[in-house]
Simulated scan of single mutants.
Amino acid sequence: MEDCIFCKVVSGEIESNIIYEDDKVVAFEDINPQAPVHYLVIPKKHIPTLLEIKDEDQKLIGHIYSVISKLAKKEGIAEDGFRVVSNCNEAGGQTVYHIHYHLLGGRNLQWPPG
């Protein structure tokens, strides 16, 4: 997607503070952090919303959660706890239409989230 900001992060066209990358995903710091640890984990494959995830994407989605687990452990937030958020469509708070998962931790997170 040529106008997708996250596709531009994946391609290197937009610079970001990448903290993890492999052949399937990229993780980078959120530019508007809501917690001491706030990373975005995105697939390199462009999938606009959670509603467009297909059966063939199951391994990719599982891999994303595996990366999230590794990052939570690496950042020292796994034991105390953390939150993973993925918004879908406008009323769900999605502003970039490329699926992404927010990893938040490092402070007590309240419920309901907002």
Rank of each mutant, 00 (worst) to 15 (best):
C7F: 14
C7R: 10
K8G: 09
V10W: 11
G12P: 01
G12W: 06
E13C: 05
E13S: 12
I14L: 15
I14D: 15
N17A: 09
N17M: 06
Y20G: 04
D22R: 04
D23H: 08
D23E: 15
V25G: 05
V26S: 05
A27R: 01
F28Q: 06
F28V: 08
E29D: 09
D30C: 04
I31L: 12
N32L: 11
P33R: 05
P33N: 03
P33G: 01
Q34D: 09
P36R: 09
V37Q: 04
V37K: 08
Y39L: 15
L40A: 01
V41H: 13
K44W: 06
K45Q: 15
P48M: 13
L50F: 11
L50Q: 10
L50V: 12
L50W: 08
E52I: 10
I53F: 02
I53Q: 02
K54T: 02
E56R: 00
D57S: 04
Q58G: 09
L60H: 07
I64A: 04
I64W: 03
S66T: 10
I68R: 07
I68A: 13
I68P: 04
K70T: 05
L71G: 02
A72I: 01
K73F: 00
K73Y: 00
E75Y: 12
G76V: 01
G76W: 06
G76C: 04
I77K: 02
A78Y: 14
S86W: 02
N87L: 11
E90D: 14
G93S: 10
Q94D: 13
T95E: 15
V96F: 01
I99Y: 10
H100Y: 09
H102S: 11
G105I: 02
G106T: 01
G106R: 05
R107S: 12
R107F: 09
L109P: 11
Q110V: 14
Q110Y: 07
W111A: 14
W111L: 15
P112K: 09
P112Q: 10
